[in-house]
Amino acid sequence: MKNSENSSAIVRDYFNAFQNGNMDKVLDLFHRNCLIVSVRDEERKKDQLHGTYRTREEAKQFIANIVNSFTTKEFSVERIIAEGNVVFANGKFSHEVKTTGKLFISDWAQVSIIEDGKIKEYRFYEDSAAFVKTSQN
């Protein structure tokens, strides 16, 4: 039980740091050899948000891509559930897409695997069709 509580606390810290704009803390919560999958597990161009990121150095690019893509209007975490070192979280968000000014609204789900007190694996899913629609002029 203790491991589950620790794992969920790390993910909760991640969301709190992001919502408070503390990107150094967000980055520090990723394991140095992390794997991040944003919507789809495939190679991506450096500035492309969705795709695969490896290592903490690429996690810095992941954070930059989010910040450069959106102005967050609302972000809510509905639940965080942990079993051992695996954490599931979900919620809703509303982002203004910076390139179009359109509102991107989606439910989201995230699965994280915690190792050595850090986020080792991070998979984030959202309504990618809505993202494509709101990203086009």
Score class of each variant (00 low, 15 high):
H50Q: 12
R54H: 11
D41C: 07
N65P: 07
H50R: 13
Q48F: 11
I36P: 00
F70A: 00
E43L: 11
E57C: 04
F18K: 08
F75V: 01
G84T: 11
R32C: 06
L27V: 12
F15C: 05
E58C: 06
A82I: 04
C34H: 11
R79F: 10
K73C: 03
L29S: 00
I63R: 10
L49G: 06
V67W: 07
R12Q: 06
T72C: 07
L49S: 01
I36L: 09
K60T: 02
V67Q: 10
T52C: 01
V26S: 04
Q19L: 15
N33A: 06
R56T: 04
K73R: 12
I80K: 06
R32W: 04
F30A: 01
E74V: 12
E74H: 15
T55E: 07
E43A: 14
V37L: 05
Q61G: 07
T72M: 10
R44V: 04
I81M: 06
H31E: 01
S76H: 13
K46R: 12
C34A: 08
I81G: 02
R44M: 01
N33Q: 10
G84A: 02
H31P: 02
E83C: 12
I63S: 05
G84K: 08
F62G: 00
E57D: 14
H31C: 00
R32P: 14
T71G: 00
E78W: 15
D13M: 13
C34K: 12
K45V: 08
E58G: 03
F15T: 02
E42A: 13
D24A: 14
K25H: 11
G84Y: 08
A82C: 04
R54T: 05
V77K: 05
T72V: 15
D24M: 12
C34M: 11
T52G: 02
E78K: 15
R44H: 02
N68P: 00
Q48L: 08
A64T: 11
D28S: 15
K73N: 06
V26I: 09
R44L: 03
E74R: 15
Q61S: 09
G21V: 11
E42W: 13
T71K: 13
V37N: 02
I81Q: 03
R32G: 00
E78I: 13
E74N: 15
E83V: 14
L29I: 01
Q61D: 02
Q61I: 08
L27S: 10
I80Q: 02
D13K: 15
H50E: 07
